[in-house]
Design a protein around this nucleic acid. Structure first.
Length: 598
RNA sequence: GGGCGCGUAGCCUAGUCUGGAUAGGGCACCGGGUUCCUAACCCGGCGGUCGAGGGUUCAAAUCCCUCCGCGCCCGCCA
């Protein structure tokens, strides 16, 4: 993480002036000591992550090497030549490193002032980045979400939240694939009277339905059986193929889109509990209907590496685009004239590029090749822009293998949430006998969804995750509920100090306990964490930061009295208010519900 | 076979992009803490050849090469 030496406003990033002072002092000191050091090199070498020796550290090795001197000697010279600065209270050479300590009073003053002034905006940026479209989830409307799919939604949703906070105008989109075989299989089976369903498909439905069940559960139930059945019955498979052609040619039965919508509504209701909402929905069929898929096909057939097959199909010889050798023959139009998923996806991406300067697609690792093929086709038709991809690994089950609907290894999101709510309810009831029924339910829901969100977001997307119930339902340690608990605890302190409400006057000099200063340093770091998470798409950095802050706050809470303190009381209350604000902002970005009490 | 990703204590994980000082957390386990602002908490202890080997470098969990293990993909499916 690098310093924001060019931070537009000291107020937005309270650690900015300190970083500027260190860089500036290093450069000037180096010059005085006859060592060449540019501001850029100083910034690049500096570590602001806060080691045990101070708030910033500068390794002198590189500079020593170019100067032909010993690193400890150079470090000593840099420290000695460092000009005094009000923001830097201590400059000390230790071994080959120069350590800098920020002036506690100034840092405290700037940080609390910034947090309390910006409030819900603290940590947010004000960049003028061009509009970004984040496409995520985009699961086929064929049945309920399982936990594996939810990883996509949570990564995408959080990326959108943190990008917005960083100052980027973001639109989220869900691409609904209502054209392909998957969605068609649903229409195929439900357009038949129940008596006409093949026995193995009927078997998974009859006796398993409950009145009033969600649309995704109800209409998606036969899907795995249909999928299995089609593998072994050519006649049925041909019926589905015929239906696919009908749909693509614009003669879809009325029930087709209705079914997709009903199932989708059920899926979205589950995601909404996790705080995931979409700005826009893009229906694949719309791109076929409005002719944009045809226009893409025109361009592809006229492209430099277009190849016509014997049966009339069209392909692109994409061997010049760095795809794996076996995957360079990309069929873009079938022999029967219909398009393929990747072709339609080109049309979709062109439509997005017409409105957004930058595109991010969140995709499972099984779509990696698709992503690269899409890139190749965009290049082939002369489109210079490319989407960027956030690829995440699958969630596997302990027995091995991917979580899948067909293999029966899926853990449904709704079941996970039901179990989590159940457990959270029991936890609340043993702690809080004073609460009314409705309040218990509200807390249980927030704890449950917060736990699930955090559990998935805490891990880097590129890491595989093995789903275990006991881990997913953990309410302790590095978990969503731990953050919520810490937030509720800070809220409780503020609530009990009846007279303590904004603007929380404070005196920085009264916050001199090591626990207090550690908290202040962490608070000051938040803007850089937000900016880094948005820039790198490492949303797990936010999860880590929130835990660190909550952890530090709890240590402070146990070590330092707030409401029962004397002259320090008002300042400590202000510190608690700043922690509550910052932790709350971090929770918002993670989509973990804030809880005032629990 | 090829492509992509992953491999950090008994288990989970941060750090890897941008190489820097004794590799941070959590769970589990052991020992403590509640007449005191929320014990879903805190304090202490235990536990690491950062998959293996080689290379680059003053310096490697981090970069490069080889190998091993695991996952995914390689359809006129999506």
């Amino acid at each position: 993480m690098s310093a924001t030496a060019s931070s537009p406003s000291a107020l937005r990033d309270p650690s900015g002036p300190f970083a500027d002072a260190v860089v500036d002092g290093l450069v000037r000191g180096a010059t005085a000591a006859n060592l060449g050091l540019t501001a850029e090199a100083a910034l690049g070498g500096l570590n602001f992550d806060g080691g045990p020796e101070g708030d910033a550290a500068f390794p002198a090795h590189r500079l020593a090497q170019s100067a032909g001197r010993a690193p400890p000697e150079v470090a000593g010279a840099l420290a000695a030549a460092f000009p005094s600065s009000p923001w830097v209270s201590s400059v000390r050479a230790k071994g080959a490193y120069v350590n800098f300590v920020a002036d506690p009073a100034r840092l405290t003053e700037a940080t609390l002032a910034s947090v309390l002034a910006f409030g819900p905006e603290y940590g947010h940026g004000e960049s003028v980045a061009p509009p970004l479209c984040v496409e995520h989830t985009s699961a086929n409307p064929t049945g309920p979400f399982h936990v594996g799919r939810v990883r996509n939604a949570l990564i995408g949703d959080t990326l959108a939240r943190v990008s917005r906070a960083a100052g980027v105008p973001v639109t989220t989109q869900y691409y609904i694939d209502d054209m392909g075989r998957q969605a068609t299989m649903i229409t195929w089976i439900w357009s038949k009277p129940r008596e006409a369903w093949p026995a193995p498909i009927r078997a998974v439905v009859d006796g398993h339905e409950t009145p009033g069940e969600k649309g995704d559960l109800h209409y998606g139930r036969p899907y795995p059986a249909v999928s299995a059945y089609l593998k072994e019955h050519d006649d049925a498979r041909e019926e589905v193929s015929a239906l696919v052609r009908e749909i693509e040619s614009g003669r879809a039965p009325a029930s087709h889109r209705e079914l997709a919508k009903t199932i989708l509504d059920g899926m979205l209701a589950s995601l909404a509990r996790l705080g995931v909402r979409f700005d826009e929905f893009a229906w694949e069929s719309d791109f076929v209907r409005d002719g944009s898929v045809d226009r893409v096909l025109d361009r592809l057939r006229g492209a430099p590496h277009a190849v016509r097959e014997e049966n009339g199909a069209w392909a692109i010889d994409a061997s010049g685009y760095g795809l794996p050798k076996e995957s360079t023959h990309v069929v873009v139009q079938r022999g029967d004239g219909t398009s393929l998923y990747v072709t339609r996806d080109v049309a979709y991406h062109l439509a997005k590029f017409a409105r957004f300067a930058r595109l991010v697609d969140v995709l499972g690792q099984d779509h990696q090749l698709h992503a690269r093929t899409l890139d190749a086709l965009l290049a082939e038709i002369g489109e210079a822009r490319r989407p960027s991809f956030v690829i995440y690994q699958d969630i596997t089950v302990p027995e091995g293998g991917r979580m899948s609907t067909r293999g029966g290894s899926a853990v449904w999101l709704d079941d996970l949430l039901a179990e989590a709510v159940d457990r959270a309810r029991r936890e609340v009831l043993v702690r809080r006998e004073d609460l009314a029924e409705g309040a218990v339910d509200a807390i249980a829901e927030a704890v449950a969804t917060g736990a699930v969100r955090y559990h998935i977001l805490r891990v880097a997307p590129e890491k595989p995750v093995v789903f275990r119930w006991e881990d997913a339902l953990s309410f302790e340690g590095r978990s969503g509920p731990f953050l919520q608990y810490s937030y509720a605890r800070a809220s409780s302190v503020l609530r009990r100090g009846d007279a303590d409400r904004p603007p929380y006057p404070f005196e920085a000099a009264r916050l001199s306990d090591p626990e207090e200063l550690a908290l202040v340093r962490l608070l000051a770091r938040f803007p850089r964490v937000v900016s880094y998470a948005a820039r790198s798409a490492h949303v797990q950095a936010l999860a880590g930061y929130a835990h660190d802050l909550a952890d530090r706050f709890n240590r402070f809470y146990h070590a330092v009295p707030v409401l029962k303190s004397g002259d320090e009381r008002a300042s400590r209350v202000a510190l608690v208010a700043a922690v509550r604000q910052t932790l709350g902002n971090a929770l918002d970005l993670l989509g973990v519900p804030r809880l005032e009490t629990m």
